[in-house]
Amino acid sequence: MDAADTDARTGADARLADFERTIERDQRIEPRDWMPDRYRSTMVRQIAQHAHSEIIGMQPEGAWITRAPSLRRKAILLAKVQDEAGHGLYLYSAAETLGADRPELTARLISGRQKYSSIFNYPTPSFADVGVIGWLVDGAAICNQVPLCRSSYGPYARAMIRICKEESFHQRQGYELLMTLMRGTEAQRRMVQESVDRWWWPSLMMFGPPDAESTHTAQSMAWKIKRHTNDELRQRFVDMTVPQAAALGVTLPDPDLRWNAERGHHDFGEVDWSELKRVISGDGPCNAERIEVRRAAHEDGAWVREAAAAHAAKRARREGEAA
């Protein structure tokens, strides 16, 4: 081995040491910092999947915008779904700081090479689903996302702060809608309970597989990409939600759910992990439909994007000639 090789290796080691020290001190990694390839690819994957989830997540609730039964609810829902488009954009923007390219990420989503949160593969047959998604799904998302405001990757952490603020508005509006329905007619109360029955277990699945089976957790924890394990966050969500359900007057559909004074936490039943696997692997009730809507929008929009690019090029040329 000659001296130049040794120097190069020492340089790489030093950069890795710098990187690890930055994380050790709880400081942020910034876009132009050196970072291990695996850190970069893990971050791109995580941020892109999160962005895809926001964009696909517009569909289940978006389906109720034109049908919302009051103009106030319609405005709130439209604003919320619009927020989700905004969140997707913040996140794609963060992914692009790592050298990822949004059109390429979109292509990966449409071709099924990159995933999104499986929760959005469930249908929304009832208007109460709008409230329950706000309460349970956005509530679970907040549990997952608040720790990400401290992600070691700076642009992601900053995007998450903005997103979490807006998500807390989403959760509040969902819960408020459910309170209104629970104070309403018998039919409205039934609507809420039926919706809770459908969404409770999928919400618990949002935290991912149990720690014992999670493949990414260990490295992600070491790099402070992830700050709590799946099971920790799931427990936290259950503990937060049980009193909210009581205040609302709905029953969570789990006969094993009870307070465990010894642990200081609620015990709850086993999630049907085979269902999660089925939904993740593309066999959920709405997988094909969700991707199809996104694909159609992207492909139907191609002539529009081309036209705008062509017009910009024409104008630039004309301005160049005039100058």
Partner: peptide, 11 residues
């Protein structure tokens, strides 16, 4: 504050 995609500066 972040980035976005657009065909031209005005957009």
């Amino acid at each position: 504050v972040g980035s976005l995609r657009a065909a031209d500066a005005e957009m």
